[in-house]
Simulated assay, not measured.
Amino acid sequence: MIPREIQRQIQTLLTEFPAVAILGPRQVGKTTLADAIAKTMKSKSVYLDLELPSDLSKLHEPEQYFELHKGKLIILDEIQRAPELFSILRGVIDHRKREGYTSGQFLILGSASLDLLKQSSESLAGRIAFTELTGLSINETYNHKTDNINRLWLRGGFPDSYTAPSDQSSFRWRSNFISTYLERDIPQLGSRIPATTLRRLWTMLAHSQGSQVNMSTLATGLDTSVTSIKRYLDLLEDLLLIRTLRPWAGNIGKRLVKSPKVYIRDSGLTHSLLNLITMDDLLGHTIAGLSWEGFVMENMLSNLKLGSTPWFYRTSAGAEIDLIIEKPGGGNFAIEIKKSLTPVLSKGFYHACEDVRAVERFVVYPGTEEYSIGNGVIAIPVGNAMQLLQ
């Protein structure tokens, strides 16, 4: 098992809240992480996979079942299959609170975010803490040498894909993952969007990784309406498969672009959708630069400090910053991401830094040394990028 950085945070939350939810896409390692956490608990644990009829049947009388296992950590996997449990959990938690049970009762795992948050926020407000498990990060794979980072970039952060014995087997795993998600998992969530339509949309997003989304172009390409495209994108974001980065909205009297940028969150899925199997395939493709940008950004944002807000900045005149981090205590970090070992910044970046009054300026690159490139900009290795935001 590759230890996950978020484990300690979840263990702390279990000492503070009656319920903790781990959200993340399928196969990202939620069940393995939950098992590792359960082994650290003083009390025994109970695991239920709500996709299994045999486990679901145990909750025919959920209150009785929870009472039978009171004092144990109860792990409920794929909770979106039984959203009716949320209202029951509220009553159980409140009843137990009067008996002196205040924390560490339920660990809830889910593969969808918005619907799950909506259900729980109505029923478990103040009783549940949320965390998100992303794919394996650069820090979690330990070795910050270029070949190791490139492997993670090529294969993505899904554990089974990253640890596959070869690039070819990793590619096959991701291809099957995509097909299963489109043909089985998404329809089970109640979506009636054709799998072929979603695959085409997902592939179009891969080709334009990290670009500003043009709803009309996507709608024309799929022969559908802009309204439908928005609904499809919301679904993919709900499933934690894409990330939407909003343009900075500061009032500076400039003509700012308004369309968000969209990234497929896992670089390995991006490469599978584009049929890029090896590092040679990837480096020879026009998407390499934007794929690297999305890979680094996802690693950084997975470490984003609570209360910080990510943006990008672009004006019609060409001033641009890949990533702005608005810090909770004030002050903006301006971050440019470059694949080159000798990064060069455009005048537009410096103009943009003045526009947003950036207090810190960085360029993240795949080298191994940290150094100044002048004009207040520090070049930092990608392996150090996550610590920058903590």
Rank of each mutant, 00 (worst) to 15 (best):
A38W: 02
Q119V: 00
I128G: 01
Q105C: 13
T141N: 04
S120R: 14
E122D: 08
I37R: 07
K97D: 05
K30M: 10
R26L: 01
R96C: 10
E99M: 06
V92K: 01
S123H: 08
A38F: 01
P62I: 11
F106A: 04
T32G: 07
A112V: 03
Q105R: 10
L107R: 00
L85Q: 11
V46M: 09
E99K: 13
H60D: 13
R26A: 03
K118C: 03
L124F: 15
I108E: 03
G29E: 04
K70V: 09
K72V: 11
V92C: 04
I88E: 15
F106L: 10
G104L: 00
K72F: 15
I37F: 05
D94M: 10
E67S: 05
F66A: 02
D115L: 04
D55G: 01
I108G: 14
F66G: 05
L85Y: 09
E132V: 15
G126T: 12
I108L: 15
P53L: 04
T40F: 00
G135Y: 09
Q80E: 13
P83M: 06
P53F: 02
S113F: 09
E122I: 00
R90A: 09
S120V: 08
I93N: 04
K42L: 14
T131E: 13
H60V: 14
Q64K: 15
G100M: 09
E132F: 06
L73N: 11
K44S: 15
Q105W: 11
F130E: 11
F86Q: 08
D35Q: 15
G126C: 05
P53C: 07
M41W: 08
V92L: 07
S54V: 13
K42F: 01
F130P: 12
E122Y: 06
L48E: 01
K70D: 11
S123R: 02
G29H: 07
S137G: 12
K118T: 14
R90V: 11
Y65Q: 03
L133N: 11
S113D: 05
F130S: 10
K42G: 02
K44Y: 09
A34S: 01
G91N: 03
V46T: 15
A36V: 13
K44E: 07
R81E: 12
D55K: 00
S111C: 08
L133P: 05
S45G: 10
L136Y: 09
K42D: 10
I128K: 12
F86W: 11
R81I: 04
L109V: 08
L133Y: 00
K44M: 00
L76H: 03
G100I: 14
S57G: 01
E84C: 03
D115S: 03
A38Q: 00
K30D: 08
S103K: 04
Q64M: 04
Y101L: 07
G91Q: 07
G29N: 07
D49L: 12
Q119S: 05
I79K: 08
G104E: 02
L73W: 06
E67P: 02
P53E: 13
T131L: 12
H60P: 05
S121A: 06
S123A: 14
H60Q: 12
T40C: 12
R90W: 00
T32P: 06
A38Y: 00
S45D: 15
R127P: 06
L56G: 10
S113K: 14
K39P: 09
S111Y: 11
I75Q: 10
T102V: 12
L52G: 01
K58P: 06
R96H: 02
G100S: 12
L50T: 00
R90E: 09
